[in-house]
Structure formats: structure tokens, C-alpha cells
Nucleic acid binder design. Structure first.
Lengths: 208, 208
DNA sequence: TAGATTGTTAATCGATTAACAATC
DNA sequence: TAGATTGTTAATCGATTAACAATC
């Protein structure tokens, strides 16, 4: 299986969600143009993406929904349950905890961290909150590979460096800062302030 | 001023944040490679982006921080205060309200909507919550151009269509669905579930 | 001036789309 | 078979990077 790009993985995740919805219905097979319609992409794109994960459809019937879904599960989900830590238990951090706690994903947030003594040792959304100083130890002991950053921008770089030192290989960064990290650490930025500014800007352009 | 791409606007927003931080210090001028360093992009990229908004630096001193910041403000911010509505006052919706209420952006959330009677007419984070049925009226009366969607995926398409009918031109979509809307409506997706799946996937790739 | 940086064009890169023989 | 769809390669598109004359 060749290298799969960032964007392809994103679309595969979306296809999976769509197929999960469709599975409830009576359809057993789906053509690329149908999935493309749901996903808002071209049929050629769908075919290339599905080819990339090594699943093959039939020219006469299209893709078997159940089989394709199984292939996507196998590709996206880890073999064993994977764990993440979250640093920064403010409003946003708590919302993230509740968001992921509600969903049944194959990756779960196992511990949260903050340096506010009022939060340490409390349990928030089924997740225990520790002092930031124990990040290294807990990450190492549990071989955690994913970190979520929801601290103010000033603190984000330092937290990211700590995470990397502890052995984390993927970071979901909600802070409005672009982190500069070693190549073997994947960073996914979710920047709400920038996103709103972009929407606001292009909405104004579309007014004319 | 030529067309500015999606990604360029995103970087401009980031540069602004960096310059705001730097402004506190003693520096008066900044070279492209310095800003590039902070932003995690190349110097050529910074020069092209700044050129795009029509600001010019000096080969000997670089960019005047205060002036560049003023250019960025003018480019990114609306001339008059701009307003948005939010639909879906669940955990995520409340977190979004508090997130934007805390920041002093030139765009503010003026009204929230939900169809849960328990939430209607309450004030959450300084924002009044209305029943979804009054969305059209309030958007039109206040000439609101930006909408934020934080409802479950099943409801997102319908809410988006309502927003478009009411005249909204830009949508910030937090639902795990790709919306298909007219070309003159800008959609920015913030998909936390997909983002976490991507981080998890690439973290595993980086383990080897 | 000499040297570094700027604005801006040309070259490169990667991702998307179009096209089409192979397949059911 | 005839017709539509598939897997897959070639063409296109757009964004990023490299390069360099103009500038301070």
C-alpha cells in the first residue's frame, strides 16, 4: 500500500461516516458517483481513494457497502485501542472531553492535565485530571502516542515540546499557534479563530 | 488587489497574531525570514502573502511591524462590526460561544438557536437563545452574513439550507458532514472527529 | 559601495480531474 | 452483446519554492 496523503485520509474518514449512515437502509451496493454525491467530491476522487486502501469494487454492481466499510475500519482504526492525553482543561478543553466521550471512537482520552490546583485530581467527563508536571510519567507508563493541546497560545509551544519529549507522535492542536516540531511528529491544527476570520472574510466577498 | 486564496487568508490571520505578540517588544521592524520562522513557513511565502495585500517593506529594514499590522487589520477585519448566528446549543455550541465571547474579535455571535424548549429564551455566555423557527426572521432583520453550525450531523444539511435561504454567505460547520451549497456561500469545515482520526493514523505511521 | 532583502517571475511540486482500456 | 462502471494512467490545475534583478 503506497503512501496515503493527509487529504486522502480525511476523505476516507468522511466516506466511512457516510457508509455507516447508509448501512441502515436497504442498499447493499453503492457506485462511486453515489458516494461522491454524498461526500461532495468527484466520482474519480472516490475511486482513487478507495483504490488507495486496496479495496476493489465490481464494474457491474459498484462497491459492497459492508465490505468497503470493513476495509475503511481496518485502515483508519488502530488494531488495539489507542489512547490520548489532553492538556488544558478550560472551557474548550472540557468541551473536547465531552465531545469525544460521547462518541464511540477507537481512540479515547485517557488523562487530562492542567496546572490549576483547583482542577487537579478532579474527574471531568469521566476523565481524571492530573497536574501538568506528571505528563511525562503518565504518557510513558501508558505508552500514549496522541496529545491534544487546548491551552492558551503562549503555553502551546512548551506543552508540545513536553509531549514530544514524552514520546508522543501525533498532536491535535487547538491553540492559535503553528507548532514547529520534529518531522516524525504529526500535527493537526484546529484553529477556530482563523476559521471564523476566513468565513467572515469570504462571506463579505460573496456579498457583492 | 488580486484574488486571495483560502490558504493565504489563513496565513495572514496567523501573521497578524504573531505581530500582535511581537508588538509588545522593542522591535520596530521585522524581516520576512523572521516572520517566517515564527509562522513555520518559508520567507518567500511570507513575502508573497504580504505582497498580496499590497503592503511593501524595505530591502534594508524589512517590514514595519506597526504598519504591516495595520494593513493586516484592514484586510482581515470588516469595516463595520460583523455578526454571526450559532445553531445548536449543546456542549460544543456552548464551548464555541464562550470561546468567541472571551476573544475581542471584530465578529461577534449575536444570537443562538436550538429547538430544545429548555434552552429557548435563556441567555448563555451573553448570547440569547431563540427557537430555531425564528432563524430566518432574525438573520434577515439584522442582516447577518455568517452562520455557525454545531448540531448533530443528521440535522446539519437542513440547518445549512435554512441559513442560505435567510441570506447567509459564510458558514463555519462543526458537524461531521460535507455540506453542498451554492457557490456564493463559503463553507469552512472544522471536523474534530476526522482530525482526531487523522492524528491517530499518522501517529501510528510515525511509530515505526 | 558591498551586502542583504525586497518584489516578482519562472520552475517545481503535488494533488485533482479527465480519459480510457478492462471488466462485469 | 451493449452499456455502464471500474482501476489506472496521462493531462491539468493550482499552490509552493527557487531564482534573480531592483532596491535600500
Amino acid at each position: 500500500m503506497a503512501l496515503i496523503s493527509d487529504k486522502t485520509v480525511g476523505r476516507l474518514s468522511l466516506y466511512r461516516r457516510i457508509l455507516q449512515e447508509v448501512l441502515g437502509g436497504t442498499k447493499e451496493y453503492l457506485f462511486s458517483h453515489e458516494l461522491a454525491q454524498y461526500a461532495g467530491v468527484t466520482a474519480a476522487q472516490v475511486r482513487r481513494d478507495i483504490m488507495a486502501i486496496g479495496y476493489a469494487g465490481s464494474p457491474s454492481r459498484g462497491y459492497n457497502i459492508r465490505e468497503l466499510l470493513a476495509s475503511l475500519d481496518q485502515f483508519i482504526d488502530p488494531a488495539e485501542k489507542q489512547y490520548a492525553v489532553l492538556v488544558g482543561v478550560g472551557n474548550l478543553g472540557r468541551a473536547i472531553l465531552s465531545y469525544f466521550a460521547q462518541r464511540r471512537l477507537k481512540i479515547a482520552i485517557q488523562a487530562a492535565f492542567d496546572n490549576d490546583p483547583a482542577k487537579v485530581n478532579r474527574v471531568i467527563n469521566n476523565c481524571r485530571c492530573y497536574h501538568l508536571s506528571s505528563l511525562q510519567q503518565i504518557v510513558r507508563e501508558n505508552q500514549i502516542t496522541v496529545g491534544i493541546i487546548s491551552v492558551p497560545p503562549e503555553a502551546a509551544r512548551e506543552v508540545a515540546d513536553e509531549m514530544v519529549k514524552a514520546g508522543i507522535k501525533g498532536i491535535l492542536n487547538f491553540a492559535h499557534v503553528r507548532l514547529r516540531l520534529p518531522r516524525d511528529v504529526w500535527v493537526e491544527n484546529i484553529d477556530m479563530a482563523t476559521a471564523l476570520e476566513k468565513v467572515s472574510y469570504f462571506a463579505r466577498q460573496n456579498l457583492g
